[in-house]
Amino acid sequence: MNRIEQLFQNKDSRLLSVYFTAGYPSAGDTIPIIEALDEAGADIIEIGIPFSDPVADGPTIQESNQAALDQGMTLKKLLSELKDIRQKTQVPLILMGYLNPIIQYGIEKFCQEISAIGIDGIIVPDLPMSQFMEEYKATFDAYDLANIFLISPQTSAERIRLIDENSRGFIYMVSSASITGAKSGISEEQISYFKRVNEMGLKNPRLIGFGISDKATFDTACQYSKGAIIGSAFINVLTKAKGGDLKAAIQTYIQSVIA
């Protein structure tokens, strides 16, 4: 059992997963941000592998990806920075990134190295389930890595069941038909979708992401799932704190969400 599965056994509600882009806001910030998030109370940390063409992301994450690349972040550099991360924290760690940089690195080599580092799972938004099952599942399984799939309001019940069948760790429930980005509030329509999926009795836990930005949206999401994922709103916090006291800014923000 890996750390993600362990986490869900130990904690049943109000889980907070936080996404940030590796190498952002400044080149050397990746490890300090992980440590600060862990201390501040994040339950899972998603480390974004920057990509030049993030088609599922809104402006905030696009810009953080481009800034990280401009500052020299690469997958190779990221993995070398993460090498000793398990001496610093036991928080479940997920790598999130688009397929092309991972393929260029080599799937087998990637899985082997991240598993050796102690990464627990990965999210690849442009790797569809069928392609994953055919080409990559065996490798991921061999290295005990959870592959986390997304579902959206348009995903059919039949397909949600299929995704549930093939998931490990948790299901990433995209809160609305949209790319990533902080939005204001959660609509009635979204809530009825949360309820509909909640009532399906899936075997995997769900975390709700996209558009979660503060205590109010976090609380709402937690009513219909095990917890939620914050991305763009956290990137905005980092952008504001750039060059200043990142650690304090992270502490204050995370506490304001989970309080």
Partner: peptide
């Protein structure tokens, strides 16, 4: 059937686009 011409093609899309 899956949209490949030899080694190239396919449909590598985010799940959000799957229904479309």
């Amino acid at each position: 059937e899956k949209g490949f011409y030899g080694n190239f093609g396919g449909a590598y899309i985010p799940e959000m686009l799957h229904p479309n």
